[in-house]
Design a protein around this nucleic acid. Structure first.
Length: 503
RNA sequence: GCUCCCGUAGUGUAGUCCGGCCAAUCAUUCCAGCCUUUCGAGCUGGGGACUCGGGUUCGAAUCCCGACGGGAGCACCA
C-alpha cells in the first residue's frame, strides 16, 4: 500500500550518501577536462575503476569534459581485443566519455615534437646499450652520445625513423647529476618492430610513457590529470618536457593506489593465478576485475560509492572488501527478489499436510516486485543444517506457510501439521517442494590469507534446491536467497548456478 | 644504498594548505538491545584514534625539527 502511494517514503529510509570530491585547484566551471588513460593490455579492475570514476566525476562536477585515451604505445603488450573490452567495462560502470582516441594515432605529431627537442639541443640519440645507460645513470656520468652535435642528432633521428639505424633510443637531455633519477636523461623514444594492434607495421619508433603522457595531456586540453603515486618522481620530468616544448602545463595530481585485503589488484599478480589455473579466468568471482565483480553480483553504483568513499588521498591503505559489500547491500537489498533456496536439502514428510496453493511476495516491503504461486503437498525439503537442530517434539515453521511438529528424526525426517499461529520464538525455515531446481552456489573467499599465501579454499561450492520461481529469474539478475545471502544467477547449459555476493 | 611520498579508532575516511568553533566527522566492523514470518534490512545504544619526542604559540591533529614506522621509484612498462 505504502509503496504504491508514496514509494519515495520507503526509498528515503536508505541513506545512500553522496560522497563529494574535494575542490580542484584552479578549476573553472565548464572548463575542466579530465582523462582516463588505460593501456589496452588487459581487463580493467577496481583500481582502474577508481581512476576512471574519479576522473569522470570531476568532469561532471565541473560540467567539463572527460576523455578516454588509450595509451597504446607499446606494441609488445597491447592487444586489439582490449580496446573494446575496456570500453565495455567502462560502459558497465556507467562512465560516458565525451571523446575517445588512441595515443598511437598521434605518432607523427610526436615525431615532430621530438624533432623540435633535438633541434633545440634538448634531446639526443643514444646508441649505448641498456646496460651502459643504466650504469651511466647510476654513476651519474654522461655517455659519448650526449656530446654529439645537433646536426648529427637530427640525422641519426631520421635514420632511426626510416629504419636504417637500430640499437638506439632518443633521450631527453636532462641532468645526469640530478638527485631525481627520473631526470637522468630518460628515454623518450625507442624502437619496437613488433606490429601494433591498430597501426600494424606503420611505425617502429614508439614514445615512452614519460613523453607520450605529458604531451598528450597537454595537447588534448586536459586541465587536471590524475595518476597514482608511484609516478610522483616523474613529475619533474613531465613539467620539464612540457617546458622545453613550450606546451601548456596541466594541474597534475597523484593519489594512492587502491589495495584490497586478500585480493590481488594488479595484472602482475592476477595473470599467474590464471596461468596456473588457480582461478578460472579474468572473470573469476574471487577477482577484483570488473568482470569478476560483475559476475559476483556487485553493481556499478556500489563500486562508484565505494571508490568515492575512499577519496583521493596519498595515504596508502589496504581496504576490506566488506566496504564494497556494504555499499552493494544498501543498493541491492531494496530491489532484489527473495527466493527460497535449500542448501544440502533433506526430505521432510508432513503426514497430515493438506495441499495448498499460496502466493508469496517476492519482497517483504516492495510489492511492485510481484509474487509467485507455490503448490505444496506432504513433501518438503529443508536445509540439513537446520534439520540437525530439530528434535522430536520440536515445533518449527515452514516460513510463510505453517508450523510443523517433529514426529521422527530417525527413519527420515517426519512431522505433522501444527497450525498456522505464528510462534514468535520458533525457527522459520525456508523450504522447497518436489518441484524444484537444482542449483549450485559458488561462494568466493579471499584469495590470499593474511600471510599472503594462496587460499586453497577460496571457492566453496554448495548444492541445493531452489524453488521453481528461479526459472523466471534471468541470467545476471541478483536475488536474495532467504537466510542464505545475495546471489547472482546464471542459467548455463550445464544447469543453474548462483554466485554468492555476500550476506 | 640513494631519493621521494605517507603516518587520525580493528579497517577505511573527514579535518591538516589558511592553528582556536576538534574532549576530532562519517562509514564499516564488533558488542548489546529493539523490531521483523530471513541468519537480510531497519532502529537505538556502546566500545574504539590524532605514531613518538622536542620546538613555536595564549592555544597544535593542524606550523617547524628530529626519531620511528609504512609505501614507492631508481626500465628502451605504463
Amino acid at each position: 500500500m505504502l509503496q504504491r502511494l508514496a514509494p519515495e517514503l520507503l526509498e528515503k529510509k536508505k541513506k545512500i550518501r553522496d560522497f563529494s570530491l574535494p575542490d580542484l585547484p584552479g578549476a573553472i566551471n565548464g572548463e575542466v577536462v579530465t582523462r582516463f588513460p588505460p593501456e589496452p593490455n588487459g581487463y580493467l579492475h577496481i583500481g582502474h575503476a577508481k581512476a576512471a570514476i574519479v576522473d569522470y566525476q570531476y568532469a561532471k562536477k565541473y560540467d567539463g569534459r572527460f576523455i578516454l585515451r588509450f595509451d597504446d604505445t607499446n606494441p609488445e603488450k597491447d592487444e586489439e581485443e582490449f580496446y573494446d573490452a575496456q570500453k565495455e567495462d567502462l560502459r558497465w560502470l556507467g562512465i560516458q566519455w565525451d571523446e575517445v582516441y588512441n595515443t598511437s594515432d598521434h605518432l607523427v605529431l610526436h615525431y615532430r615534437l621530438a624533432h623540435q627537442l633535438i633541434e633545440q639541443g634538448d634531446a639526443y640519440v643514444c646508441r649505448c646499450s641498456a646496460e651502459e645507460i643504466k650504469k651511466g645513470r647510476f654513476n651519474q656520468t654522461d655517455c659519448a652520445c650526449r656530446g654529439y652535435d645537433t646536426a648529427g642528432n637530427i640525422e641519426m633521428w631520421e635514420r632511426m625513423l626510416n629504419g636504417s639505424l637500430d640499437q638506439c633510443v632518443l633521450r631527453l637531455k636532462g641532468d645526469m647529476r640530478s638527485v631525481n633519477t627520473a631526470m637522468r636523461d630518460p628515454t623518450l623514444f625507442r624502437i619496437i618492430t613488433t606490429p601494433h594492434p591498430i597501426q600494424k607495421d606503420r611505425y617502429h619508433v614508439w614514445p615512452t610513457y614519460d613523453f607520450a603522457g605529458a604531451v598528450e595531456d597537454s595537447l588534448s586540453g586536459v586541465t587536471h590529470p590524475f595518476r597514482t603515486k608511484e609516478y610522483e618522481l616523474r613529475d619533474e620530468c613531465y613539467f620539464y618536457l612540457l617546458d622545453k616544448l613550450g606546451l601548456r602545463k596541466p594541474h597534475l595530481m597523484e593519489f594512492a593506489r587502491l589495495s584490497i585485503e586478500g585480493m590481488p589488484v594488479s595484472k602482475r599478480k592476477i595473470k599467474p593465478l590464471i596461468d596456473e589455473g588457480l582461478v578460472s579466468g579474468y572473470d573469476d568471482i574471487r577477482l577484483p576485475t570488473l568482470r569478476g565483480l560483475q559476475r559476483r553480483g556487485i553493481v556499478p553504483e556500489a563500486i562508484k560509492q565505494f571508490v568515492l568513499s575512499q577519496g583521493i588521498s596519498k595515504v596508502e591503505s589496504t581496504v576490506t572488501f566488506s566496504l564494497v559489500e556494504s555499499e552493494n547491500r544498501k543498493i541491492i537489498d531494496i530491489r532484489s527478489k527473495r527466493l527460497f533456496f535449500v542448501p544440502e536439502p533433506i526430505r521432510l514428510t508432513v503426514d497430515n499436510a493438506m495441499e495448498k496453493s499460496i502466493t508469496l511476495p517476492f519482497h517483504p516491503t516492495d510489492g511492485s516486485l510481484g509474487s509467485r504461486l507455490v503448490h505444496t503437498s506432504d513433501t518438503f525439503f529443508i536445509p540439513s543444517d537446520d534439520a540437525r537442530k530439530l528434535h522430536k517434539g520440536d515445533i518449527f515453521r515452514l516460513k510463510d506457510l505453517y508450523n510443523v511438529e517433529i514426529k521422527d528424526t530417525v527413519n527420515g525426517l517426519q512431522g505433522s501439521y501444527a497450525g498456522t499461529d505464528l510462534l514468535q520464538e520458533s525457527l522459520k525455515i525456508q523450504w522447497t517442494t518436489n518441484d524444484h531446481i537444482d542449483v549450485t552456489v559458488y561462494i568466493p573467499d579471499l584469495l590470499y590469507t593474511k600471510d599472503d599465501v594462496y587460499n586453497a579454499d577460496s571457492l566453496r561450492k554448495v548444492s541445493g534446491y531452489a524453488e521453481m520461481a528461479l526459472k523466471e529469474i534471468r541470467t545476471g539478475d541478483i536475488v536474495q536467497f532467504e537466510r542464505f545471502g545475495f546471489v547472482r544467477i546464471e542459467h548455463t547449459s550445464k544447469g543453474t548456478i548462483a554466485n554468492f555476493s555476500h550476506r
